[in-house]
Design a protein around this nucleic acid. Structure first.
Lengths: 218, 218
DNA sequence: ATCAGCTAAGCTGTATACATCTTGCCTGTC
DNA sequence: GACAGGCAAGATGTATACAGCTTAGCTGAT
C-alpha cells in the first residue's frame, strides 16, 4: 500500500498542490475554487482547505469574496510588469547574496534537465514544457543560499508562472528551443563554477521572456 | 460608542495586530501565543486567530508545533544576515522600480516625523522610538510604486524589526539621534525630488543598523 | 413587456465540539 | 533514591454545525 499519511501538514500539501494547479493552468483565470469540492477531493474537511487558500492569497493569484467564492485572478499587465521588474533585480543576487557552493551533483541534475529539454524540443508538448520548467525552477531555487532570496524567488515564480505558461501554449515548440538555450547557458555557468554567471543568465532569459509576454500576450 | 465592527476581515486585523506585537516586542522570543487566550482577548473564536497565525508563519517569526503551541522565535544571526543582505539590495530599488511621484503631502509627513524624532531625541523612551520608526517605515513603504517591492519591503521589515528594536532598547537615546539623522537625509532627498537618493539613504542607514546589530547583539 | 422585490440556493465566515499530540507529574517498582 | 511507565492536563489539528452574505431566478404588479 502507499504511505498511509505523510507526517507533514495537510494544509501545506494542499497549499502546494493548489499553487501548482494555478501556475500549471489546471485552474485558469476566472475558475472558481470551491472549498467544499476541494475538501471532498482531498478527503478532508473544509478547514485545511481554507487554511491553504488563505495562505496563498497574499500572492494575489486568487481573490476571495464573502458569499461568492474564491476565483483565480489573471494578473494585469501592470502587476506582471512589477513582478518581472523584481525578478530581473533578484536574478543577479543568486550569485551574490550568500552564494552556495556548486556540487558535482548539481551539474548532473543540470545535464539531465538539458537532456530532457532536448527531448522536448524533438517532440513538444505543452504539459511537459511546464513541468520541465518547474523542475528547472526548483533546481535554481535550490542553489540559492540566502533564505529570504529563495523565498522571494519562489513567490515571484508563482506570480509569473501562470502568465508565462499561457504564453508557452501559444509559442509551442519555440518555447522548448529557448529552454534548451537557457539550460545550455546554465550548464556553462556551472561548468565554470560561476554562480554569478548563473544569476546573469537567469536575468537575461527572464528579460527575453518578459519581452515576449508584452508583445504577444497584451 | 466606537465603531461596532469594521468591514475588513477579522483575520487580517488580528494578523496585523500579532505582527505588530511581535516586532514591537510585546511578545518576546520564547513567548507562547495561545490561540484560546487570544480568541478570548479579541472576542472571537479560535478560527480567525488560527488563520492569522497561519498566515504570518511563513515569515519565520513564529513556530507552531502540534500539541505544544506557537512560540515566538529569535532569528539566528545567519537568518538576520540574510534578511539584512536582502534589505540592502531592496533599498536602492525604491527609487528605480516603478517609482511613484513625490507629493507635497509626502514632504509634510516627513517634516512631521522629523519633528517627532527631534522631540524623542530630547526626551527618549524606547516605546516611542519603536512606534516612530514604525510610522517611518509605513511612510517609506507608501512611496514605493512597485507592488512586489512594497510587499517584500514589508516582509523584511517584520523580520528585522524585532531584532532591531531589541538593539534600540540597549542603545537608548543614541537610537533617536540616529533616527533624526536618517530623517534629515530623507527630507533632503524629498526636497530634491529624488527618490533614488531616498533609496540610497535607506541603504546607508540599514547598513549602519546591521553593523551595530552584529557588534552589540551577537 | 418591464422591472422592482422577494426568495431560495450556494458560497464563504465563524463558532464549537471532538480528535490527536506532547509533556509534566505522579506513582510504583527495583 | 532512581527510573520506567502511565495518566491527565492543555495545547494544536480537524470536522461539523450554523450564521451571514451574494446572486440568480422567479413572481407579480404596473
Amino acid at each position: 500500500m502507499t504511505a498511509p499519511s505523510p507526517p507533514v501538514n495537510i494544509s501545506e500539501e494542499i497549499q502546494a498542490e493548489l499553487l501548482q494547479r494555478i501556475c500549471f493552468l489546471d485552474y485558469r483565470p476566472g475558475d472558481q475554487l470551491k472549498e467544499a469540492y476541494l475538501a471532498k477531493e482531498f478527503g478532508v474537511s473544509r478547514t485545511p482547505v481554507r487554511d491553504a487558500i488563505s495562505r496563498i492569497s497574499h500572492l494575489g493569484l486568487v481573490e476571495t469574496r464573502n458569499g461568492v467564492g474564491t476565483v483565480v485572478r489573471q494578473l494585469s499587465l501592470t502587476e506582471i510588469t512589477h513582478v518581472y521588474n523584481m525578478r530581473l533585480e533578484l536574478a543577479p543576487m543568486i550569485g551574490m547574496l550568500n552564494p552556495r557552493q556548486i556540487a558535482p551533483s548539481d551539474r548532473k541534475v543540470c545535464e539531465r534537465l538539458l537532456g530532457q529539454a532536448a527531448d522536448l524540443n524533438d517532440a513538444f508538448d505543452a504539459r511537459g514544457y511546464v513541468q520541465l520548467n518547474h523542475r528547472l525552477h526548483e533546481f535554481i531555487a535550490g542553489l540559492i543560499g540566502n533564505d529570504v532570496l529563495r523565498s522571494f524567488w519562489w513567490q515571484t515564480y508563482y506570480q509569473a508562472a501562470s502568465t508565462w505558461y499561457q504564453l508557452a501554449h501559444l509559442q509551442g515548440p519555440k518555447a522548448a528551443t529557448a529552454l534548451v538555450s537557457e539550460l545550455t547557458d546554465i550548464r556553462d555557468a556551472l561548468d565554470h563554477n560561476d554562480l554569478c554567471a548563473l544569476g546573469y543568465v537567469q536575468r537575461i532569459h527572464i528579460g527575453y521572456g518578459f519581452e515576449q509576454i508584452k508583445t504577444l500576450l497584451f
